[in-house]
Computed example of a mutant assay.
Amino acid sequence: MDTTQDLHGFSQFLANRLAAGDSALPEEMIALWRSEHPLPTEIAQSVDALQLSLDDLEAGRTEDFDIANDAIRQSHGWRAN
């Protein structure tokens, strides 16, 4: 998407949010826009991270959640489940 289209889309997004009564701060509006319209590089990074996770899962490089959760809780002095 080129800059002009991106700015037009963001302008429409703001107009719609304001018309709906949203009173978020400008920084919050930008963050919400970015969460709904990630950059291509952000999408590529997410896909790469997911692939690494799937590779770990297939290779057996995972740990049971309950064991990992208890270890993290213990390391912070929190109550184990």
Rank of each mutant, 00 (worst) to 15 (best):
D2C: 08
H37Y: 07
L32F: 04
S75L: 14
D48A: 07
Q51I: 06
R79C: 03
E58L: 05
A49R: 08
A59Y: 01
D22A: 14
L7V: 14
Q51P: 02
L18Q: 13
H37P: 15
Q45M: 12
G60W: 00
L14M: 15
P38L: 11
D64C: 03
D66P: 04
R73W: 05
V47H: 00
L7Q: 15
T41Y: 06
A71R: 12
S75H: 09
M29Y: 09
Q45T: 12
S53P: 03
S23D: 10
A59I: 01
I72N: 12
L25T: 15
S11R: 07
V47W: 02
A68K: 07
Q5Y: 13
V47I: 07
R34Q: 11
Q12Y: 10
A71V: 06
H8Y: 15
P38A: 12
H37G: 07
A49L: 02
T62P: 00
G21A: 02
G9V: 06
D56W: 05
V47C: 00
D22R: 13
L39W: 01
Q74Y: 15
L52W: 06
D56K: 04
Q51A: 09
A68Y: 04
G60R: 00
G21Q: 06
A59H: 00
L57W: 07
N81F: 07
D48T: 00
P26S: 03
I72G: 14
H37W: 06
H8S: 11
L54I: 02
N81Y: 03
L7E: 15
S75Q: 08
T4R: 10
D64L: 01
A49N: 02
D64E: 01
F65N: 08
H76E: 09
Q45G: 03
H8E: 15
Q5M: 02
S35H: 09
P40Y: 03
R34H: 12
L25S: 13
Q5R: 07
Q45C: 05
I30G: 07
S35M: 05
T62R: 04
Q74V: 06
I43L: 15
E42S: 13
E63D: 09
P40V: 12
D22E: 09
R34A: 13
E42I: 01
N16M: 08
T41R: 14
F13C: 14
R17E: 11
A71W: 13
E42M: 05
D22M: 10
N81V: 13
S23P: 11
R17Q: 15
L18N: 12
F65K: 09
A31H: 02
A59N: 01
I30N: 12
V47K: 08
L52D: 05
L50V: 07
A24H: 06
A80Q: 10
S11T: 15
L52Y: 05
S23G: 04
S11V: 14
L52V: 01
A19I: 10
A24W: 05
F13M: 09
A20Q: 08
E27Q: 06
A68L: 01
A71N: 11
Q45A: 14
E42F: 04
W78Y: 02
A19Q: 09
R17T: 05
G60I: 00
G21S: 14
I67T: 13
A59C: 03
